[in-house]
């Protein structure tokens, strides 16, 4: 899904926002007001201007095709049992009950939970389980655009890796468009194709992620942290050492440099 924001303004907040989010890419949005894009796409936020989804005005679009997986708050779940929460979502999915149950179970399995969760009370789940459930609930409806807010928050390595794989599969195997809202430059650098940085509801910069993060001076002047890998490479550069782009290349470069320095040291 290609998304175009054309001259969007809203009371006190946004002034003439123009932006394009490309189809079948992972686009990261960084900045303290990064949820404004998700709110424009999913809320009934009053605005002037036009939002186009695949050349169709958003006003005529089936908004069930857009899902926004926010951070968990007290409004995330509306019912008591996990199964009730899934059946509440059924109104957005046009299938028979038996097929829907299969869909629920495969959605739970995809995130790493099993069907015993259907009988569990949501309030008794841990935050990580709630997060996985929330993702499973949203994926059951086969959306076109998925907006993840801090996708790995609350999740350990195993589950983060699983969710990362789901995100990449959604893009590569199922041609979905993904938006990731995050304040973590490391995550955005690793996972996204394109990046938009917002400040005070205005676009500071947008383009290819790897290109944007190369402009150290600009980012530093706007108080935006660089990913650790680039920060370390910059630091090495100040010592006259050029390092590669992957961790293995960096280790190799550092090892060679340190060993060479030791050899060059005059012996006592």
């Amino acid at each position: 899904m290609e998304i175009k924001f054309m001259n969007i303004s809203s009371k006190n907040k946004i002034k003439k926002l123009n932006l394009k989010i490309l189809n079948n890419k992972i686009t990261g949005i960084l900045g303290d007001t990064n949820n404004i894009i998700a709110n424009l796409l999913t809320d009934n936020l009053n605005y002037q201007g036009i939002i186009m989804l695949d050349n169709l005005n958003i006003l005529g679009y089936d908004l069930n095709k857009i899902i926004y997986i926010k951070k968990i708050d007290k409004n995330t779940f509306l019912t008591k049992l996990v199964s009730d929460e899934f059946y509440l979502k059924k109104k957005n999915v046009d299938v028979k009950d038996t097929i829907y149950l299969d869909k629920i179970i495969s959605s739970l399995r995809m995130v790493g939970l099993d069907d015993t969760y259907l009988k569990r009370e949501i309030r008794m789940l841990s935050k990580s389980e709630k997060r996985l459930l929330q993702i499973a609930l949203n994926l059951v409806s086969n959306p076109e655009l998925i907006i993840f807010e801090e996708p790995f928050l609350y999740l350990d390595n195993k589950y983060s890796y699983n969710i990362e794989k789901i995100i990449l599969d959604l893009k590569e195997k199922y041609d979905k468009t993904i938006i990731i809202l995050s304040q973590d430059p490391n995550l955005l650098y690793e996972l996204t194709d394109n990046l938009i940085i917002l400040s005070d509801n205005q676009v500071l910069v947008s383009g290819k992620t790897k290109v944007i993060f190369k402009d150290k001076e600009f980012l530093t002047s706007k108080n935006i942290n660089l990913p650790d890998i680039l920060l370390f490479k910059e630091l090495a550069k100040t010592k006259g050492i050029e390092l590669g782009d992957t961790i293995d290349e960096i280790v190799k470069g550092v090892v060679e440099n340190v060993r060479k320095n030791e050899e060059d040291k005059p012996e006592d």
Binding site: D156, N157, S160, D228, I229, V251, V254, V255
Partner: peptide, 20 residues
């Protein structure tokens, strides 16, 4: 390996293995 390692910890662990 179940715990998240930041880039710096990961790098320093690899450099430690190489006795740097």
């Amino acid at each position: 390996s179940r715990f998240k390692e930041s880039f710096i910890i990961n790098l320093s662990n690899k450099l430690k293995e190489q006795e740097i």
